[in-house]
Each structure stands twice: as C-alpha cells, then as structure tokens.
C-alpha cells in the first residue's frame, strides 16, 4: 500500500523549472533514495515534502493524510541535514530533549526516550557532550537520533553522509541501513553518490532536470537503465551506439548497447553456445585489488573490461591479444532516437 504519495509536484523560480510534475509513491517501511546530479531538484523535492519549500502545485499524502498545506512541525516528519544542524549551545541530551519538551512530556518519559534512542545510535556515553566535542560521524548520529526520538512517520535524509570522510561514510552508511531496518521507519534519502544509492535504497528514483527519469530497485536501475541519462549516471557501463556495437560484433544491430565491464568474459565461448566472440587487444591494465580493469580494443572500438583477479594468476599485459565472449542477454539495449 502506498504510504507517501506525491502527485504532480511542480515548482518554478521565474523561468527556472525546478520540479516538473513529480509523481512518486513510497511504500511503508521502504528506504527510498532520490539520486541525481547537483541541480536536478532532488533536495528541493525533499524540502517540499518537509514543508521547508512550498511547491507551486501538486499534492502530498502521508499515511492517507493531505499534508501539503501543513506547517513543517505538523507533518510528523523528521529530517537529517547534510551539515548536521545541531544546536551548538546544547548538549547531546538537550538537543534531543528540545523537541520532546515542546510536546510537554514528563521529564522521566523524555529521559527514557532519549536513552532508548541514544542506545540505537550507540552514543550512550556522549549524552552530556556538546556538538563541538563530537566527530563528524558522531554529530550525524546525534542528528539522526534527534529526528528518531520524536517517532516521526517519515524520515528525510538530505545527503547525510556527504560531509564525512570516506572511512566514516562507509561505516555510517551500514549503520544507517541497520537502524532503518530496525526501526522500520519509512525513509527518503537524497544523494548524488551512486554507490550510496545502490547499497542503501530498497528502491531508487533517478532524477534529472526536475523530473524522475526512472524509479526501480537498485539492480534494475543498474542493469536495466530506462534511458541513456540513467545509464551514464549509474555505474561505468560501456555505452556503445548501434553502429559501434555492430562493428564490435561484426553483425548489424539497431539499438544502443549498455554492457557492463564485467559482462565481457575473457576466453572462448563454449562449443555450440550462441555467445558472440570478439578478438580484442589489451590497451591498458590496472590491477585494483580483487578486480583487474582493462581497456581493450576490438575492431576499432575501445571499451572497458573487468575481471576477477586471483592470487596465483597473471593478468593480461598491455599489447596482449585475447578472445572475449559476450552473452547478449547480459547486456541491456535501448532503442536509438
């Protein structure tokens, strides 16, 4: 059942169309990711749901209730900001208590709720610290706790990991996923990082120029992008025009081919299969841990190939000739305009 429903959300500033008729349904308990390049409207869409931006048109229903005209505080939505937005003059506990006090709860209840949430984000021992005494990752966990403690019906996360350095980002990403699973809280996360989107999102909406280009599960978006924009934005697939692909396989073909580097298999196809075989030359070799990345050339077409590396196996040196086999059912094809 649809839990959050956006229909025809539109917003323009002067001649600039920021949101161009967005329709989106999010299921209860889902972690939904809005993914797109900067300026695509993803943050504005998130802020519209929160009520921090008022769209020109469109309707927003949350749990069956129309909320588009409500004040942010009445929407029952929690939000985590990119730069934490913690109240710097308050301790962690006071930050969490601020919203609860507004609800006129008894002190004891407030303390219990705060302790429970601090346990979820593993910050029990930081309750009396001030924001400036915390690391970036800890700050963001406090921000998450501040949103969770009010038991919102929807959690919005605006690039929550992008201000953190790589190590912390990965750890907090996993923790975010765990917390979201544990609380079962319907969440929408905005990011421009495809890895983050693929590893966090139950479903992903790819946005471009104020529109949603495709909404689907991570694997679906990854392997079956709806158009060239999504294909280019997600992953590092080889995108070959019909002409290029025809030359590569030596056969007439009328669609753009999207072939991930790991889809190419090094070695001959087994006897009797319907795989294509291509004679290729290695142009460049990069051994990066468990994978080897090759740039190869065949019939005048350059493309990327990725293979698993093994401990006792040499990778192909540049200049080596090899045979590649391609299973067309592992590629994705788009009609050319």
């Amino acid at each position: 059942m649809t839990y959050l429903d956006l229909s025809a959300i539109g917003l323009r500033y002067g001649d600039n169309v920021i949101l161009d008729g967005i329709d989106l349904s999010v299921e209860q308990g889902e972690m939904h990711v809005l993914l797109g390049p900067s300026g695509c409207g993803k943050t504005t869409l998130l802020r519209s749901i929160a009520g921090l931006v008022q769209p020109d048109r469109g309707a927003i229903h949350l749990a069956g209730r129309a909320i588009e005209m409500l004040h942010p505080k009445d929407r029952g939505i929690g939000m985590v900001f990119q730069h934490y937005a913690l109240f710097p003059n308050m301790t962690v506990r006071q930050n969490l208590a601020f919203g609860l006090e507004q609800r006129r709860l008894v002190r004891k209840v407030i303390d219990e709720k705060i302790d429970a949430v601090l346990e979820i984000v593993s910050l029990q021992n930081k309750a009396d610290a001030r924001p400036r005494q915390l690391s970036g990752g800890q700050k963001q966990r406090v921000a998450l706790a501040r949103a969770l403690v009010l038991e919102p019906s929807l959690l919005l996360l605006d690039e929550p990991l992008s201000a953190l350095d790589a190590q912390i980002r990965k750890r907090l990403r996993d923790e975010l996923k765990r917390i979201q699973r544990r609380t079962g809280l319907t969440s929408i996360l905005v990011t421009h990082d495809q890895d983050e989107a693929l590893s966090l999102g139950d479903r992903i909406s790819v946005m471009n120029n104020g529109r949603i280009t495709q909404t689907a599960s991570g694997p679906e978006i990854f392997y079956r992008p709806a158009d060239l924009f999504v294909a280019k934005f997600i992953g590092n697939a080889n995108i070959l025009t019909a002409a290029e692909f025809s030359r590569l396989i030596g056969r007439d073909f009328d669609q753009t081919a999207i072939i991930h580097p790991h889809v190419f298999k090094i070695g001959k196809a087994s006897e009797g299969s319907n795989l294509f075989e291509v004679a290729a030359t290695v142009v460049e070799t990069v051994a990066a841990g468990n994978v080897v990345r090759y740039v190869m050339q065949a019939n005048g077409i350059m493309f990327n190939v990725e293979a698993q590396s093994a401990m006792n196996e040499e990778c192909l040196a540049a200049g080596t000739g090899t045979t590649l086999s391609i299973n067309p059912s592992n590629g994705h094809f788009l009609k050319e305009n």
Binding site: Q102, R146, L150
Partner: peptide
C-alpha cells in the same frame, strides 16, 4: 545557519 532554524521548526520549536 538557516538549517538550524529549519531543524528547530521541524521538531516543533
């Protein structure tokens, strides 16, 4: 930062 104000308004302050 305006984000502080927005965060406050979202938690009902």
């Amino acid at each position: 930062e305006t984000e502080l104000e927005e965060a406050a308004s979202l938690i009902g302050v």
